[in-house]
Design a protein around this nucleic acid. Structure first.
Length: 321
DNA sequence: CATCAGGGCCCTG
DNA sequence: CAGGGCCCTGAT
């Protein structure tokens, strides 16, 4: 039932990221929960993208120093669509972002030298559209990783589009319109609880404002953008801090720690979990100033990568899978 | 079996 | 600005 839509290769194009660039660190984030929206291989990821109302499959691969993008679709695609995909992927993965001053400035930093040595050129990024990101943020709320995965899978199975291309299968996120016509009760049947209301409200908001994402992107002032995002129903400080950094690439978007994140950063900075979030924030600002969130990101992803290779009991204790 | 705390957010007082 | 309620799940 619910057969996948088969897509075939239509084109391949290339992006030139700004130097320094690290493919793996930018495209694969081990601290993120595993969703069926993205599949990660070695130096290669698969995802979908919606452009002008059509869905495409993407295979994005490391083609050092460039990034290769193979596009899968139902029929031949126009130059215009090709270019739109290129521009959109460049934005989402922040390939024009400039992290050279950070890499140069802190390569001898006591804490950052290791992570920078291993990941120089990694940047904050997201595979998702703004709407997709908000749906993910919604299922992250008040939930462990396992429960988040369960909610997302249930939603995708019912409302997502299953795609098959390049020998992988994954889901494209539903459109805001699709959820608009679904009752809150039907959503609750998927065990998403009170989040059903937020999913509906956000979907209605995006369905009635098709150009919402581009208007958010035009806001260049961080505080102003933050204020606008907080007006979205169901979006609070935690979701906003993820959004500002990962989706909008503000390297200083750190004025909030959730308790579990604070414990991990405290351990990495001081060797114990006890530092108070407020004190860590002040210290992090003093150390890394306008690069503070990027710095924490390097430290964070580095330790998660390490966890894939070796056991780190104190960390596993904090991450409730 | 019951109770409770989560990788928040909204609303009320 | 503090704190209760909201959903579900798994731990105790």
């Amino acid at each position: 039932m619910n057969k996948p839509i088969k897509l075939s290769k239509q084109a391949t194009l290339y992006l030139e990221p700004r130097f320094p660039f690290n493919f793996k660190g930018t495209f694969k984030k081990p601290s993120h929960f595993p969703s069926k929206l993205v599949i990660c291989g070695e130096n290669r990821i698969f995802q979908s993208i919606e452009i002008e109302g059509s869905i495409f499959g993407l295979e994005i691969f490391d083609c050092h120093p460039r990034i290769g993008i193979a596009i899968y679709g139902k029929r031949r695609i126009s130059e215009q669509v090709k270019n739109a995909i290129k521009v959109e992927i460049a934005f989402r993965y922040n390939t024009n972002g400039d992290v050279s001053d950070f890499v140069q400035g802190f390569r001898r930093d006591k804490i950052l030298s290791g992570p920078i040595n291993r990941w120089a050129g990694m940047r904050p990024s997201t595979a998702y559209s703004l709407y997709g990101f908000l749906m993910v943020a919604t299922v992250l709320q008040n939930a462990t990783v396992k429960r988040t995965v369960q909610m997302m899978d249930a939603l995708l199975q019912k409302y997502g589009k299953r795609l098959a291309f390049a020998r992988v299968e994954l889901y494209a996120i539903w459109t805001p319109n699709r959820i608009e016509s679904v009752s809150e009760e039907d959503l609750r049947a998927l065990r998403v609880g009170y989040r059903a209301k937020n999913i509906k409200r956000i979907s209605q908001f995006f369905a009635s404002n098709p150009s919402l994402e581009s208007s958010f992107r035009r806001i260049s002032n961080k505080e102003e953008l933050k204020k606008s995002l907080l007006k979205i129903y169901g979006v609070g400080p935690q979701s906003v801090s993820y959004l500002l950094f990962e989706a909008f690439h503000f390297y200083d978007a750190l004025d909030h720690f959730s308790p579990w994140e604070a414990k991990i950063v405290s351990m990495l900075l001081y060797g114990n979990k006890d530092a108070r979030p407020k004190d860590i924030l002040a210290d992090v600002e003093r150390r890394w100033g306008p690069w503070r969130m990027l710095a924490v990101h390097y430290i964070f992803e580095d330790i998660f990568w390490r966890m894939e290779r070796e056991k780190i009991p104190w960390l596993e204790e904090e991450i409730r899978m």
